[in-house]
Measured scan of single mutants.
Amino acid sequence: MPSETPQAEVGPTGCPHRSGPHSAKGSLEKGSPEDKEAKEPLWIRPDAPSRCTWQLGRPASESPHHHTAPAKSPKILPDILKKIGDTPMVRINKIGKKFGLKCELLAKCEFFNAGGSVKDRISLRMIEDAERDGTLKPGDTIIEPTSGNTGIGLALAAAVRGYRCIIVMPEKMSSEKVDVLRALGAEIVRTPTNARFDSPESHVGVAWRLKNEIPNSHILDQYRNASNPLAHYDTTADEILQQCDGKLDMLVASVGTGGTITGIARKLKEKCPGCRIIGVDPEGSILAEPEELNQTEQTTYEVEGIGYDFIPTVLDRTVVDKWFKSNDEEAFTFARMLIAQEGLLCGGSAGSTVAVAVKAAQELQEGQRCVVILPDSVRNYMTKFLSDRWMLQKGFLKEEDLTEKKPWWWHLRVQELGLSAPLTVLPTITCGHTIEILREKGFDQAPVVDEAGVILGMVTLGNMLSSLLAGKVQPSDQVGKVIYKQFKQIRLTDTLGRLSHILEMDHFALVV
């Protein structure tokens, strides 16, 4: 994948999101292997301009796509893939009243899908469409860049269908997702969380590099694949309309690839034109409109599966009536509230959605109805927002919020430890010299600072030695090549209790 991002070429006709291997024109390309080798690009942008032909009021008969309808489940399912879809609609009884809503608040519980998330729908649909058009064949390999849930859905379907599955996901995604993927037989590649989507090191860039190296491999490409919004247009939206008897006044959905909100909203605009569509985008993402909503100094966020630093091709923002931004604290607070007060075992993005819903639905009156999409299960986040310690460490809970008995030293300040200034190293000294210094002084790690004293990161003896043994660096290389740029900081005025929580999850903390 090139470091400079080429513009994806656009073909003359058809839909841009065809499933299957992508040609340089962004659509299915038939021909000899030699032709494909000559024409197939190194990668295709996940934010390529959409060429979708959908228009409100256009006859369904003019759609270029294969459409399906929700099917009634048999008493005995032939395999677990038949437990994807037909998820329950559940009334939220307490939270709406707590925040003064007059309307009825309903939750579409997508964590009841077989793999635990709304992404099971698009995973199965992308595979079925690729099999139907002859792209996927027995023994082929599926590769997908994902925040985890699409990966789980694909790995689940691949396990049943017999495909090899490789999932490329950023490091910030939970260990629970990784464990589930491994249990399903998927191979996992992790990428830096802070890598831009168009960087060769991003999950998108690495996935395309693997595709170019592995024979008979395919990126189904949830960011561009029409099967993504079509899955929701054909099934999720129809289920909502049936469950609500066609009567709903507002739908609120958090947005990642945009397939969920695009597919549902398009069908609702056709069948229930008075329904307002509300999009939820986390602070630090750029999906919301108008652009002024996205202006923030924050560039990272903890909530998973929603928000991006690019506009995915499948996201149709014209069908969203209003956007709201959400933050991590309210997302996790509301997710825990949904679990504790409503018994809905949902993930953090569901918290984002409901946090926005109780604001947006203030305009609705008694007798009206708001539906929220709860995308995934708490299963993926047992060591994250479900953990009091994690919430404390991230600053989303305060010590006084917890009532468990603490040891005698818990409320003492870090400054009472009488710490001395640490050994520091410059980023320009060599790895070999740094190892000598650390061994001589008896230290395992040291902060790396520039000549102005600005902290650049941390270097550890173990990481340097393993990097040297693996051949990633040489003793003569500058130590700046092996620094940890993500590390926890703590102030002298913070409590030892807070430091204790940090050290339970990290090997060190830097006192500043």
Rank of each mutant, 00 (worst) to 15 (best):
G14L: 12
R161S: 12
K102L: 08
S202G: 03
C103D: 00
G100R: 05
K247L: 10
I44C: 04
G246R: 14
G85R: 14
L77E: 02
G116I: 06
P6Y: 10
T236E: 04
G20V: 12
V204Y: 10
H203I: 03
C109G: 04
E104F: 03
C15Y: 11
S61Q: 13
C165M: 06
S123Q: 07
L181P: 01
P229Q: 05
A48L: 05
K82W: 08
V252N: 07
Q242K: 15
R51K: 12
P145A: 07
G134S: 07
S63I: 15
E176N: 03
D133Q: 10
I240E: 00
I84C: 08
G100E: 08
P12A: 11
C103P: 00
E104S: 13
E131D: 12
Q242H: 13
L230P: 05
L210M: 08
R132E: 10
E201C: 08
I264H: 06
S202C: 01
N149E: 00
E40K: 13
T191H: 00
E40V: 09
D140T: 07
S199K: 06
N194Q: 10
R18M: 07
A71S: 13
K108V: 01
S217H: 00
G151W: 02
G148Y: 00
I152A: 03
Q222D: 02
E239M: 05
E176V: 07
T257C: 03
V118G: 06
A60L: 11
S174K: 02
E131H: 03
T236D: 03
P170A: 02
M126T: 07
C275T: 02
M89E: 03
V204M: 09
P64Y: 03
S174Y: 00
E62K: 14
P59L: 15
L56I: 13
K267A: 15
K39Y: 03
S254T: 09
C275D: 00
Q7Y: 12
F197W: 12
G259E: 03
G185Y: 01
V118E: 06
N93E: 03
L106P: 07
T193N: 13
R91Q: 09
A60W: 11
K25R: 09
S117H: 04
D249G: 12
A195G: 03
V10K: 13
E213S: 06
Y163A: 00
D249A: 12
S63N: 12
I188R: 04
A195S: 03
L56Y: 09
D198K: 06
